[in-house]
């Protein structure tokens, strides 16, 4: 649930990047971190193993500006994608306002994508959320790789409800801000509804 502090005039929203291992969740955050004005970002924190695999989460606070006199802050989190970190993933989903699912476009990762999507739905459900009612965006990452599956096929497998989706090449930043902007928009419109 977004946290609105009327005294400090701040809105804080939590956005979680979900997806299978090595799909590029951390890379998304790193690119956002690299390209954001130093005044508007906090420190990026990565709790990773020595081999740079996410162990618990990455965290990046972003203060983008003001809406109606309220400072809007987004707290971006990634989950550890590897299957055996499921307990940690559940914890990070607590209090989420919006989810970005980062899918790996490569044919050989399709199964991992589907499994992770089911895992997301299940873990949200355990926390009392319904994925179909949350702000939700899908990103098809790694579009530059030779074995990338067509967007049509990916949509069929991962996005039957037709939520907004973006093609991305995260290390080059392609599609990264488009994804962020769409999820931010959905989250803020949700606050508008709730307010």
């Amino acid at each position: 649930m977004s946290f609105i502090n009327y005294s400090a005039r701040e809105i804080n929203c939590k956005i979680v990047f979900y997806g299978p291992g090595l799909c590029g969740k951390t890379t998304n955050l790193q690119y956002i971190y690299k390209k954001t004005n130093p005044d508007s970002k906090g420190k990026m924190i990565s709790l990773a193993t020595e081999s740079e695999r996410t162990l618990f989460f990455d965290f990046l606070p972003l203060a983008l500006g003001n809406i109606k006199g309220f400072k809007v802050r987004f707290h971006l989190y990634t989950v550890p994608g590897q299957v055996f970190y499921d307990a940690s993933r559940k914890l990070i989903l607590k209090g989420v306002d919006g989810v970005v699912f980062v899918a790996d476009s490569q044919a050989e990762r399709m199964e991992a994508d589907i499994e992770s999507m089911e895992n997301l739905r299940k873990n949200l459900h355990e926390q009392g959320y319904n994925l179909d009612q949350l702000p939700f965006v899908v990103q098809y990452n790694k579009r530059d790789l030779p074995s990338a599956v067509s967007v049509g096929e990916l949509n069929q497998a991962l996005n039957p409800k037709g939520v907004p989706f973006f093609e991305a090449i995260a290390p080059q930043g392609q599609g990264v801000f488009e994804t962020l902007k769409e999820i931010a928009k959905q989250v803020i419109l949700e606050i508008k509804k709730g307010g």
């Binding site: 946290f3 804080n12 906090g42 924190i45 618990f56 606070p61 707290h75 209090g95």
Partner: peptide, 28 residues
């Protein structure tokens, strides 16, 4: 801090402290 990692209020020598990140890690 609330359990989702949002800082509610901070008091003391906070000038050189990254309270936002501390809040998030505390919740984690």
């Amino acid at each position: 801090v609330d359990k989702n990692g949002q800082l509610i209020s901070a008091v003391g020598e906070t000038e050189n402290l990254d309270t936002t990140s501390l809040a998030s890690l505390t919740a984690g």
